[in-house]
């Protein structure tokens, strides 16, 4: 079935949005934990989880960058219809969506300022696979250590060194998502 831009939003925006936000919150508050989202369908190649994050967090006030992997008319139309988020270049983006390769180089994204570290980008990284294996994570939100299949290490280690500045990431795959905040220490 082809998804037109009118389809695939939340059936009950207030309640579905609340559930989706809880998943996003738990994921960001507990790096390495995998949450699931349901009931959303965006045009390919956007995953259910990525589409859910965009519906939950984006609107006309949040400039969004679509990396080449996700920059299609169908997805643009869907995002515009459901959120009204303006599409912008990576440097101006509050949110960015794409595969890790397509988002590179990630040092283009805003990392906030010393006085306002919150004015930084959140990257939604679409993954071919997502599992609690691979890189070892420590830091806020993690009891001892956690593991997550990150697309690389160096970029996240560099991001941590700038703390409290930095971007924050969601990794999405199908209906599943995990979070990685700039505060997380990442080792191989």
């Amino acid at each position: 079935m082809t998804i037109t831009h009118l389809d695939g939003g939340f059936t009950d925006p207030a309640r579905d949005g609340a559930r989706a936000f809880r998943a996003a919150l738990q994921a960001m508050a507990r790096p390495g934990r995998i949450e699931t989202l349901a009931g959303i369908a965006a045009p390919a190649p956007a995953s259910v989880a990525a589409a859910g994050l965009i519906l939950t967090l984006c609107d006309t006030t949040t400039p969004l960058y679509l990396a080449p992997s996700h920059d299609s008319d169908a997805l643009r139309g869907w995002i515009t219809f459901h959120t009204g988020a303006p599409f912008v270049a990576p440097e101006r983006a509050m949110f960015a969506l794409g595969s890790w390769a397509a988002l590179a180089p990630v040092d283009r994204f805003s990392i906030g300022t010393a006085e306002y570290p919150d004015r930084s980008a959140t990257l939604i990284v679409e993954m071919g696979a997502l599992s609690q294996t691979g890189a070892t994570l420590t830091g806020p939100g993690i009891k001892d250590s956690a593991q997550l299949s990150l697309p690389e290490l160096a970029a996240f280690q560099q991001n941590r060194r700038r703390f409290p500045l930095g971007f924050d990431c969601y990794f999405t795959c199908g209906d599943r998502l995990a979070g990685l905040s700039r505060s997380t220490r990442v080792e191989g």
């Binding site: 936000f21 996003a24 919150l25 960001m28 967090l57 939100g141 924050d168 905040s181 505060s183």
Partner: peptide, 14 residues
């Protein structure tokens, strides 16, 4: 809510 939720997530990140 979206505005507050975005602020909460940044708060969690920092």
């Amino acid at each position: 809510k979206r505005m507050i939720r975005r602020a909460i997530l940044k708060g969690v990140a920092v």
